[in-house]
C-alpha cells in the first residue's frame, strides 16, 4: 500500500507566478520524480520530467503541475475571483514530514494556545466547542464548520482578542482551505489555504496562500505573519512519530476536538489516498 497511483491523479503547486524570470531554471521534486522548471517570456513557465513537458495550469498565484495524462480537475476557490481581496502568496517552507501530516495540522485548532501562544490562542481559552464536520457529496470534500475559538491576534489586521469563526474545506488530499472571521470586514471571511507539494512520502514543500480583506498591512508584514505561524507548526510537524500519518485510530488516540482530523483520515482511506499514510494503520 503506497498510493502513488492515486496521488499521481492530482495537480500540485510547483512555483509561484513570476518566480522564474525568462531563461532562469530551477530543479524541483514531485512524488519522487525530478523536474526541471524553466522560466520563459511573458512570465510563462515550462516544466519537464525526463525531458517530457508536463501539463501546467495557473491558479491562485501559483503554477500547478500534474504527472498524469488524465488528471482530476483542479479544485476551485470562488473567492480568488473577488478583485477587492489582497492575494498573498507566502513563499515556500520545506518540512520533513508526510504531506498528509502538514494538512492535518492545518485543520487542527486545539493546538493554537500551545503552539501559537498569544497569537492564535492563549490559555485559559483552550476549550474546543462542538462543531460540525461533513463530507460534501457533490464535491467530495471534507467540510468542517461552526468552529469558534478565542484568538488574541487572529490576523495581522486584528486589534486585540476576538472570538474567531472558522470553516475548513479539504478539496484534495494535499490541499486545505480555511475561511475565518475577517477582523476588518464583518460580512466577509478571510481565506487562507495550504497547498502542499509532496516531494516524497516523508518530505513536503508547503505553499501558504491568502486572500484577505486588509487595506493597511504591508505585503511583507502579511507574509511575515503567516511565516511565523507556519514555522511554529513546523517545529511540531518534524517531531511527530511516525513521520507518516496513521489512518486508523489504534496508534493515535483522538478526542472530540479531533473530529476534522478523524473525518480527514477516513476520507483519505475511503478514496485510497495512501501516499504519505502509514501502512496498515
Amino acid at each position: 500500500m503506497n498510493g502513488i497511483e492515486h496521488a499521481l491523479e492530482y495537480w500540485y503547486p510547483i512555483a509561484m507566478h513570476n518566480e522564474l524570470s525568462n531563461g532562469q531554471t530551477r530543479r524541483a521534486r514531485l512524488l519522487e520524480k525530478e523536474l526541471l522548471l524553466s522560466g520563459g517570456a511573458n512570465d510563462s513557465l515550462t516544466v519537464t520530467c525526463n525531458e517530457r513537458p508536463l501539463a501546467l495550469q495557473s491558479a491562485f498565484d501559483h503554477w500547478w503541475v500534474t504527472l498524469s495524462e488524465n488528471p482530476l480537475p483542479l479544485f476551485t476557490i470562488p473567492e480568488a475571483d473577488e478583485a477587492e481581496r489582497r492575494f498573498v502568496p507566502c513563499g515556500v517552507v520545506r518540512v520533513a514530514c508526510s504531506p498528509l501530516r502538514a494538512v492535518e495540522n492545518f485543520l487542527d485548532i486545539a493546538h493554537f494556545p500551545f503552539v501559537h501562544t498569544d497569537v492564535l490562542g492563549a490559555e485559559p481559552h483552550t476549550e474546543v466547542y462542538k462543531y460540525d464536520v461533513k463530507i460534501d457529496e457533490s464535491k467530495d470534500e471534507v467540510i468542517a464548520s461552526n468552529i469558534r475559538f478565542y484568538q488574541p491576534q487572529a490576523a495581522k489586521s486584528a486589534e486585540g482578542g476576538i472570538e474567531t469563526e472558522y470553516i475548513y474545506r479539504v478539496p484534495a488530499p494535499m490541499v486545505a482551505i480555511l475561511y475565518k472571521t475577517c477582523p476588518q470586514k464583518a460580512d466577509a471571511m478571510d481565506v487562507i489555504a495550504l497547498f502542499v507539494q509532496p516531494l516524497d512520502e516523508q518530505t513536503c514543500d508547503v505553499w501558504p496562500w491568502m486572500a484577505l480583506y486588509d487595506d493597511t498591512s504591508t505585503m511583507a508584514d502579511l507574509i511575515q505573519f503567516q511565516q511565523l505561524i507556519f514555522l511554529q507548526d513546523r517545529s511540531i510537524l518534524e517531531n511527530q512519530i511516525p513521520r507518516k500519518l496513521p489512518l486508523d485510530p489504534g496508534l493515535e488516540i483522538p478526542t472530540r476536538a479531533d473530529l476534522t482530523s478523524i473525518s480527514y483520515r477516513r476520507w483519505l482511506k475511503k478514496r485510497g489516498a495512501y501516499y504519505g499514510a502509514l501502512e496498515n494503520c
Binding site: A110, P113, F114, T126, E127, V128, I253, T255, R256, A257
Partner: peptide, 14 residues
C-alpha cells in the same frame, strides 16, 4: 487533563 475539553475525564488508555 485535555485542555480542549477541560471537563472531560480522559480514559486510562491514554
Amino acid at each position: 487533563y485535555i485542555p480542549a475539553h477541560p471537563e472531560l475525564t480522559p480514559p486510562k488508555t491514554v
